[in-house]
Amino acid sequence: MSDLHLESGGDDGPAVLFLHGSGASGAVWKPVLERLRESGTRYRWLVADLPGHGRSGHREDYSPEGYADAVSAALVGLLGENASLNVVGHSLGGLVGMTIADGTHGVTVESLAVIAMKVAWTEEELARRSALADRPIRILPEEKEARELFGRISGLRGPAFTDEDRAGGVTARDGGYALSADPGITRAAPATGPELAARMLKVTCPVELACGDHDPGIDPADMAEVLGHPVTVLPDAGHNVHIERPDLIADLVERALGR
Results as ranks from 00 to 15, higher is better:
L17N: 14
L17M: 14
F18S: 02
F18I: 00
F18K: 03
F18A: 00
L19Q: 11
L19I: 15
L19F: 12
H20Y: 12
H20C: 10
H20N: 12
H20P: 07
G21T: 10
G21W: 10
G23I: 13
G23M: 09
G23T: 12
A24M: 11
A24E: 12
A24R: 09
G26P: 09
G26F: 09
G26K: 04
A27W: 08
V28L: 07
V28W: 03
V28T: 14
W29Q: 02
K30M: 09
K30T: 15
K30C: 09
P31M: 04
P31Q: 00
P31A: 01
V32F: 02
V32Y: 01
L33A: 04
L33I: 01
L33V: 04
E34W: 05
E34G: 05
E34A: 15
R35S: 07
R37C: 05
R37K: 14
E38W: 07
E38T: 01
S39L: 11
S39V: 01
S39Q: 14
G40W: 07
T41M: 01
T41F: 05
T41H: 05
R42K: 12
R44H: 15
R44E: 12
W45S: 13
W45R: 11
V47R: 02
V47F: 03
A48G: 04
D49C: 08
D49S: 06
D49K: 03
L50R: 10
L50N: 12
L50C: 13
L50I: 13
L50A: 15
L50W: 12
P51V: 07
G52Q: 05
H53G: 10
H53F: 14
H53Q: 13
G54T: 08
R55F: 09
R55P: 08
S56H: 07
S56L: 10
S56Q: 13
G57R: 04
G57S: 02
R59I: 01
R59Y: 13
R59M: 02
E60L: 13
E60A: 15
E60S: 15
E60I: 03
Y62H: 02
Y62I: 04
S63Q: 14
S63T: 15
S63L: 15
P64V: 14
E65L: 06
E65D: 14
G66K: 06
G66H: 02
G66F: 09
G66P: 00
Y67V: 10
A68C: 10
A68S: 11
D69H: 12
V71C: 11
V71A: 09
S72P: 01
A73Y: 02
A73L: 11
A74H: 05
L75E: 01
L75R: 05
L75T: 04
L75H: 02
L75Y: 09
V76W: 08
V76K: 03
G77W: 10
G77I: 05
L78Q: 14
L78A: 15
L79E: 11
L79F: 12
L79V: 11
G80A: 05
E81M: 03
E81F: 07
N82V: 00
A83I: 03
A83Q: 01
A83F: 04
S84F: 10
S84W: 13
L85K: 07
N86V: 07
N86L: 06
N86Y: 14
V87P: 01
V87K: 03
V87M: 00
G89C: 08
G89H: 00
H90S: 10
H90T: 06
S91V: 01
S91N: 11
